[in-house]
Amino acid sequence: MAKYTEWITEEGLLKIEGWARDGLTDKQIAENMGVAYSTFRDWIKRFPALSAPLKRGKEVIDRQVENALLKRALGYEYVETTKELTDLGLTVTKQVTKQVAPDTTAQIFWLKNRKPHEWRDKKETEVTGNLNVNNPFSDLSVEELRKLASRDG
């Protein structure tokens, strides 16, 4: 069974950070380390040396995904290059600038998460004032109510 001390080396911490940066889940990282997920979670709580590289690695991939989502939401241009095999090897025969239209689903997702008060689907309405209920039996005792109930039954 792997020990904590095997993972606080420079090499071990780099591996953990790299796995997090590659997008592996904590459970997958624990498997790569050869420890149970519950042990891994315990180590993360007890040993800051392990949690720091894990956090750093996740921040990198989270930023990349955020940037990709934003790029998709806004649309972008890219150059498509066509190459053909000639006597001189692969030769560029054509370059075309193409556009990817903004993606409304990405825009909605971004806005609902970044500006939830303005963009979420569920709207909350505050109601003020009093609600008056006319209850003709409010002054009756429990005994009087039971008599009425037995008469109606």
Rank of each mutant, 00 (worst) to 15 (best):
L50K: 00
S51K: 08
D152K: 15
F109S: 08
P136T: 04
V127K: 08
T97L: 08
G153H: 06
T82H: 10
N130D: 12
L145W: 10
L74Q: 09
V133F: 07
G89P: 00
D152V: 14
T125Q: 14
L50C: 00
Q95C: 04
A101D: 12
V65F: 15
H117C: 13
Y78P: 02
E124Y: 09
P136Y: 01
E144P: 10
E31M: 11
K71R: 14
R114E: 13
V60K: 09
R120G: 05
T9S: 08
K112A: 03
E11P: 02
N67K: 14
E144H: 12
S38W: 12
L69C: 01
I108G: 05
K55Y: 11
K147P: 04
D152L: 14
K147I: 11
I44L: 10
Y78I: 01
A2G: 06
S38A: 15
T39A: 04
A30I: 05
I16W: 02
M1L: 08
T105C: 04
M1H: 10
K45W: 07
S138K: 13
K122D: 09
V35C: 09
E118A: 13
I8Y: 02
D139P: 14
K3R: 13
R114W: 07
T82N: 05
I29Y: 04
T86I: 00
Q64L: 14
M33Q: 00
N67C: 13
I8W: 01
L131N: 11
T91C: 05
L90M: 09
N130Y: 10
W7I: 00
E6N: 03
V142K: 15
Q64C: 12
L131Q: 12
W110M: 14
E144C: 09
